[in-house]
Design a binder for these strands. Structure first.
Lengths: 332, 332
DNA sequence: ATTTGAATGGCAATCGTTTGCCAGAATTTG
DNA sequence: CAAATTCTGGCAAACGATTGCCATTCAAAT
C-alpha cells in the first residue's frame, strides 16, 4: 500500500549495465572507477531518483551517519544555542542529529548511549551527569566529545566561565562591592563547581572572602529561595550559578521590594535567551554556546576519519566575556 | 581497535541452544514460543548483554523505530515545549527522535524528508512551509502528522489560537479598548493568517474594525518596526502574531517612553519561555505546546500499527486560554 | 486408535549495501 | 618488446536481523 518498492542500487546497476558494486563505488568512492562509468552511473542514479538506504549501508559498513546529542533537559534555554550549533555543523557534514533528553540522570544517559551505540557514529554529551569512571568507560565503546565537562582521555570543549568569573569580580569590585555571594547550583553540575571554585579563588586573591549559599536545584523556581538566602548573607552583589537562577532571583527581589541595582547587584552566567529582556536586563557572562556546539561536532567528526590528524586537541577552551546590562551598579 | 565484536542474535541463540529465529521471536513476539524457551532466551540475552542492532532490524523488517521532528528553527522558543513533548512521548514508546531544523525553507523540508524517508517510520511537521499540494504528496510517501497546519488528508493537531483571540478581544474590550491593532507576522505562517482571520472576524462582530500592520518577519528584532507601526495606527491595544514579536514590541515601547499598560496594552500569543519575566510580564494566549507535541506523536504512532483503529481523528484541536499579566490594563 | 489441529522450533531466503579479492585490460617501465 | 604496474570492473561474502514456510510434537476430539 505504502510507497511502491524503492529504487535500489541494483536498479541503478541494471539501468547502467554494470554491477551493483560498481555503482556503490562510483557514488561513494569516485577515484575507484573510470570517469566515463561514473558519469553514466550518476546520470542513471539521478534519473531514477535513487537514494541509498542508510540502514543497509550502516549494516555493511558500520557507519550510520548519525550523531547523538545528549542534553540533560531539552527545555533548558542554555541548550538551544548548543543544539543549533550542532545541528548546523552536522547538516553541513551531511549527518543526522539524534536528540536525546537524559532528564538529568546519569543512568538514563548511560543506558541510552549503550542501547544506541550500534546506531551511532558518535555522541556529544552536553553536561554529562556521569561519574568520571563511567564516562571514560563509555568513551571506549563509542566516540565521545563532552561539553563543559573535562574528563581525562575524553576530548571536550569547555566554556571558560571560570576566567569570566574573574571579569565579573573585577567589574563588581570596581563598582565598590566588597561582599559578594554566590548562589551555588546543583552539586552534579561540573560547571557549577568550577564557577564556585574560580570565585573562591578570586576572593582569596583579592582578600575578600566570598560566601556561597545553596546548593539550589536547577530552574527558575528556586530563585526565590536563593534570593532570600543571598539577602541573608548581607552581601551587596550576587553571582548566580546560571542565568535561569539569576532571573528567578531577580523576580524574587522585585517581589520583596529590593531594588536592583540600587540595593544589590546581580550577575548571571551563560547569557541565555531572555537575559537581555528580563527586568532589569541581566549583566551576565556571555558564553559562545553555539560555537561550542559547532566545535564539539568538528572535534567528533575529526576523530571519525581513520587517518585522523593525530589525537587532535583534546580540550578546547572557549573564552567568555562579560556583558554588562542593568542588573549591576554602584554599591550602595 | 574499537569495541570487540558485538553480541549478536546468533550468540544468544548459541548460548541458549536454539535457532536465531527463535531468539528473535522470543524477544519480540512472545506469544510465538513456549514460556520455557522464552525465559531461557531472555536470561541468555540479559547475561550476554545483548542489544539488537537496529540497522539490521530495520533492513529486514522495514521499521526503523525513529521518528523525525521537523521544526523551522530550533532556537525559536516556541519549539522548546513542543520538542519536549515529542521527546517524552517517543521515549515512552521506545522510539528515537531525529530533530531536523528546516531553516524555514519548504524546499529544505521536502528534500530532507525525501532523502530520509527510508530511515524513518514517520515524521512530525511543526510549522511546515510547504504548499498544500506538496505536503499532501509527501504524506503519500511517508506517514505524517502536522502541527498548526491543516491540510486535507493529513492528520494534524492544531492549537486553537483563533478561539483564544476572541478571549483576548473580550478582555481588551472589557478594559475599554476600542481600537485594536494586529502585528501581522510572516505571510508563510499558517497560524499567523489564522490569527488575523479570527481577529478580523471578531472586529466585524463587535462593530470595531480592527486594523493590522505588517507583515513582519519572525524574530524579536522586528519588534521595533512593529511597535512604531502599531503606534502609528492610533490603536490603544496591540495583539502580536506571537510572543517573540510582542517582547520585541515591549522593548521598543520602553525605549520610546510609551508606558505599558498605561498608554497602550499588549497581548502576545503562545506563552513562550520568557513571557512571564519580560518587562512588563506579558498578557498572552497560553498554548498547550507540550501537549501538542505529545498528541502529535500519539496520532502518528496510532497510524503506524497496521490494525489501526480506523482512520482515527484526523484533526485534534487543542484549546488555549488567556493568561493575564501586566501588559494589559484599562484604556487610557 | 485415528484424525485434526494447535503449538513450537528450525531452515533459509531476504532486506540493500559495502568491500576484499580476483581477473582482464591498459599503461608504464626498463 | 617483455615485464611490471596500475586501472577497472565483477563476484560473492558479509553485515544482523525478520519472517514465510515446513516439520515435528503433543494434546484434544471423534
Amino acid at each position: 500500500m505504502r510507497a511502491r518498492r524503492a529504487v535500489t542500487i541494483t536498479d541503478v546497476a541494471a539501468a547502467t549495465g554494470v554491477a551493483p558494486s560498481t555503482v556503490s563505488r562510483a557514488l561513494h568512492n569516485p577515484g575507484r572507477v573510470s570517469a566515463a562509468t561514473r558519469e553514466r552511473v550518476e546520470e542513471a542514479a539521478r534519473r531514477l531518483n535513487y537514494v541509498p538506504n542508510s540502514q543497509a549501508r550502516a549494516l555493511s559498513s558500520g557507519r550510520t551517519g548519525t550523531i547523538a546529542v545528549l542534553v540533560s533537559d531539552v527545555t533548558n534555554p542554555f541548550y538551544f544555542g548548543l543544539i543549533r550549533g550542532t545541528q548546523r555543523q552536522l547538516k553541513a557534514a551531511g549527518r543526522a542529529q539524534l536528540l536525546i533528553d537524559t532528564e538529568d540522570s546519569g543512568d538514563h544517559e548511560a543506558e541510552m548511549l549503550l542501547s544506541m551505540r550500534r546506531s551511532l557514529d558518535g555522541a556529544i554529551l552536553a553536561a554529562s551527569r556521569l561519574p568520571e569512571r563511567r564516562l571514560a568507560a563509555l568513551a571506549e565503546e563509542i566516540p565521545l566529545v563532552t561539553v563543559n565537562r573535562n574528563v581525562r582521555g575524553v576530548p571536550s570543549v569547555v566554556i571558560d566561565t571560570p576566567a569570566g568569573i574573574d571579569l565579573a569580580v573585577e567589574h563588581l569590585l570596581s563598582l565598590g562591592h566588597r561582599r559578594i555571594a554566590y548562589a551555588y547550583g546543583p552539586e552534579n553540575s561540573w560547571s557549577n563547581r568550577a564557577r564556585w571554585q574560580a570565585l573562591r579563588a578570586a576572593g582569596v586573591r583579592y582578600g575578600h572572602p566570598f560566601v556561597r549559599v545553596g546548593p539550589f536545584p536547577r530552574g527558575r523556581a528556586f530563585g526565590s529561595a536563593a534570593a532570600d538566602a543571598l539577602l541573608n548573607t548581607g552581601a551587596t552583589a550576587f553571582i548566580a550559578f546560571n542565568d535561569l537562577l539569576a532571573i528567578g532571583i531577580l523576580t524574587r527581589l522585585r517581589e520583596r521590594g529590593v531594588r536592583v541595582p540600587g540595593d544589590v547587584s546581580v550577575v548571571g552566567c551563560d547569557d541565555i535567551f531572555g537575559a537581555d529582556f528580563c527586568n532589569p536586563p541581566l549583566t551576565t557572562l556571555t558564553a559562545p554556546i553555539e560555537q561550542a556546539g559547532r566545535t564539539a561536532v568538528s572535534m567528533l567528526l575529526a576523530r571519525l576519519v581513520p587517518a585522523g590528524p593525530g589525537p587532535g586537541r583534546r580540550t578546547v577552551l572557549l573564552p567568555t566575556h562579560l556583558t554588562i546590562r542593568d542588573s549591576t551598579g554602584l554599591a550602595p
